[in-house]
Design a binder for these strands. Structure first.
Length: 269
DNA sequence: AGCTGAAGAAAGGTTTTGCG
DNA sequence: CGCAAAACCTTTCTTCAGCT
């Protein structure tokens, strides 16, 4: 700025008001640009999204038909698979999934296109809840509706229709004791899945600073610092990436999807 | 930048189930 | 049937995300 006015003077644009006029305009432009200066980069945040090999293996481990599935019964397998997919695809918080109702997915017709679309209601399920730790939505604004793919709808319907254990509670996720699944049990499920990963996948996590992950059935004897188990929150971070990709892929569903997205609740990475 | 509620870790317990 | 393992849960305490 200083430089520019000096140059103008030097070039002999010495009509004072001419220089002043230019200076005023430049000042204004400078002010404008200062507003849109790029934000300072934050100190590099550790990567929380999971490596691709780990995500691929988790699909295989949770797949109810897979040889690698460590869970015993078909009921628990399909329940855990749906739980995993909800965390990975929708990026739900741990507790949010446990609040879902067995009728959380709703459909409606779009009067303009005449097509059916479906979404899932993330909200607080009213009624008695016997759990020691009550899951809760973090804020009122956490109540939202998320668009769901036909694949997810099929998975949901299959589980609810064929495998969900009947219970007097309306929750989607029910334990073998016929009560809503406890928060800790979700961790237990992911612990089992984590120990079922191949050595290669475990190595990929250790490269990222995780502690050594024990083999199935064994406790962890390793004293190294770091995370030992994949958590729903890790999937939430991974989900943000996947979600963007799916929206781009979904083409003409895009507007509908965005309409259902609560922009105030965009996932931050 | 501070705060609040959710997530996570750890330890340890009970109930249920698959399978020999 | 019997038993070991899986499934599930409580309790306490610490850490962290993300809202205001």
């Amino acid at each position: 700025m200083r430089f520019v006015t000096d140059v103008l003077r030097h070039l002999g644009v010495d009509e004072a008001d001419e220089v002043q006029r230019l200076e005023a305009r430049l000042t204004r432009i400078e002010a404008l640009y200062s507003q849109i200066a790029p934000k300072k980069k934050k100190a590099a945040a550790p990567i929380r999204a999971l490596p691709a090999i780990v995500v691929e293996e988790l699909y295989e481990i949770f797949d109810p038909l897979s040889q690698r599935n460590p869970f015993k019964t078909v009921q628990i397998r399909s329940r855990n698979y749906l739980l995993f997919i909800l965390y990975l695809h929708l990026g739900l918080r741990r507790g949010e999934a446990l609040l879902l109702s067995a009728s959380a997915i709703r459909s409606d017709y779009d009067l303009i296109t005449g097509r059916e679309y479906r979404w899932i209601n993330v909200t607080t399920l009213e009624g008695e809840d016997p759990r020691y730790l009550q899951p809760a939505l973090k804020t009122e604004q956490s109540q939202r509706q998320l668009p769901v793919t036909p694949e997810l709808v099929a998975l949901f319907d299959n589980y609810v229709g064929n495998y969900r254990i009947h219970s007097k509670y309306g929750h989607l996720f029910i334990s073998q004791k016929k009560t809503p699944l406890a928060l800790q049990t979700v961790n237990d499920i992911f612990n089992v899945a984590t120990t079922s990963l191949s050595p290669a996948a475990k190595a990929a996590l250790e490269v990222r600073g995780w502690a050594k992950i024990p083999a199935r059935g064994k406790g962890s004897q390793d004293e190294r610092e770091g995370k030992r188990w994949i958590s729903p929150h890790d999937l939430r971070h991974t989900a943000a990436v996947l979600r963007l990709k799916r929206f781009v892929d979904s083409g003409d569903e895009m507007e509908k999807a965005i309409g259902k997205l609560d922009t105030r609740n965009n996932l931050s990475l």
